[in-house]
Amino acid sequence: MNHCLLCEQPIAAFPTWSGLLGIEHKKDICDDCSKNFQHADIIDDDPLFDRITSIYTYNDAMREYLHQYKFLQDIALAGVFANELRAVLKGKATVVPIPMHPEKKIERTFAHVDELLKRAGIPFTHLLEKVDTAVMGEKSKEERLAMRPLFTIKPGTSIGPGPYILVDDIFTTGTTLRHAATVLREAGATQVEAVTLIRAEPSH
């Protein structure tokens, strides 16, 4: 029997035609834990983007999930929201994960956005390289505005008009995504969207 990755309780499984045909994706968390996550379904207007979509809000349940996944390095949790990400990202656009700085990747042991996409079965392409180890949540608004570019185009990469979808785990101020979108547009992209798993309100 499958067990919930969050509360470790057994997940009841019932026979379905999808399961028998092998096209049903198994659940990683139980219904009780699923109810604790609040859908955001936020779509923003921003001049740098054709569309920005956030799937969940940053409530207590999401805070605990993100801490366990990213900071306690529980990579098994990468598949918890695979179905939701798959539903939003399916299509013909080039999916571009926000990259980690190499030093940060060594510290975290895995690229968390890459793993979310892998578990969702979403093909992706690394077009950007991060050139700054800065953490946006630790900077003031003035410091964020004064920052040098966070990203550069990966050497040997050719950027066409698009469409491109930037993917990150959390949207707080939007600084990271705007830096990435700016680099893509300056390199020739004319259609850039963004998708984040989580939307958080910036702290002041």
Rank of each mutant, 00 (worst) to 15 (best):
D46E: 08
D74N: 12
R86Y: 06
V131M: 13
H112G: 04
V95H: 05
D132G: 05
H25G: 11
N2A: 02
L48A: 12
I159V: 13
P99D: 01
G22F: 07
L116G: 09
F37K: 07
D46L: 01
R51N: 13
P163M: 07
N36G: 10
K130I: 05
R199E: 14
V195Y: 08
K154I: 00
A13V: 11
I42A: 13
N36Q: 15
E138H: 05
T16S: 15
I75Q: 13
A93C: 07
E8N: 12
P97G: 09
V80F: 00
W17D: 15
T175M: 03
V131K: 15
A61K: 10
T125V: 12
W17V: 14
G19L: 06
T157R: 06
T172V: 03
H3M: 09
L77C: 07
L21M: 15
G19P: 01
T94M: 10
Y56K: 13
I43H: 09
A189G: 06
L177S: 08
C33V: 07
L66S: 09
I55Q: 09
G91R: 05
L66T: 11
K35Y: 01
H101I: 01
E115H: 13
H67K: 09
R148M: 10
L177H: 03
L197H: 08
E186P: 00
F14G: 01
D41F: 06
S158A: 09
D168R: 00
K90H: 03
T53N: 04
A146R: 04
T125Q: 15
D169K: 05
R51H: 09
G160A: 14
L85H: 05
V96G: 07
A82H: 09
N59V: 02
K90S: 12
V96L: 10
F71W: 07
V88I: 08
D132M: 09
Q38G: 01
A87N: 14
T157Q: 04
V195R: 11
H39S: 13
R51C: 12
H112A: 08
I106K: 13
I98L: 10
D168A: 05
H112K: 06
G137R: 06
A76D: 15
P149N: 09
K105C: 07
L145R: 12
I75L: 06
K35E: 14
D60T: 11
K141D: 13
I52P: 09
C33E: 13
D44R: 12
S140T: 15
T94F: 02
F124M: 14
E103A: 00
T175S: 12
P99G: 03
G137P: 02
D44H: 02
N36P: 00
I11C: 03
A40I: 04
E107A: 07
L77F: 02
S34P: 03
L5M: 05
T173V: 05
V80R: 07
E138G: 00
L127E: 04
S54E: 12
A180I: 05
A181C: 10
N36R: 13
P47S: 08
H67S: 12
D114T: 07
H179A: 04
K154W: 01
R51Q: 15
T133G: 03
